[in-house]
Amino acid sequence: MQGPSDFELSRRKILLGTAASVAFGVAPRIADAQTPAVPVQAGAAPAISMSKVSFSVNGKPREIALDTRTTLLDALREHLHLTGSKKGCDHGQCGACTVIVGGRRINSCLTLAVMHEGDEIKTIEGLGTPENLHPMQAAFVKHDGYQCGYCTPGQICSAVAVLDEIKAGIPSHVSADLNAPAQLTNAELRERMSGNICRCGAYSNIAEAITEVAGRQA
């Protein structure tokens, strides 16, 4: 009954005293990989379960072996050193960790990395660079849609996905008519962006930035 290959892998879990991640192939060299291995502890110490996962991040294939407990957020930040996605609460209560998986925005802190076998993941680093900003990033700069900057990558990933959601006709809590095409109003943007908290209070400017990009797209 059982025996999908990945399950086999997880059964062949590596018993390690240290669960330092091991990077394969295309993954960058990371500090942890240079850590001298600590001897495997004898006796009753609980085992660490490792599992291998492959996915693509910003178009690049990645394969890493991880402690199964590693969230997608920590895999990105601590193992792939893609620190653009932020840890604000680690409990799905703030949105700073928002990334786009398979075209949809999710909280990367509330999903295990090993559950993303084969997924296409897009992070803030995949949208643009300081020298070549994505239109949404440029609009945030222009409209001062941030202050401390910590929630900003999540806001921007969310904003990009929100415009796609509206285009796809997904309704929201404030849509007056569930059966009419979704509208691009200020109230719609604010409702849809409400999973991204900005304690600095840049909301009014963020709404203006998104509106400008949406207008350009339309």
């Binding site: 799905g92 909280n107 929100v162 569930l178």
Partner: peptide
């Protein structure tokens, strides 16, 4: 049902 779902959580959480 549609309305109840849309009143809950956030866009990110509803996607998952």
């Amino acid at each position: 049902l549609s309305r109840a779902l849309l009143a809950g959580a956030s866009g990110q959480l509803r996607n998952k």
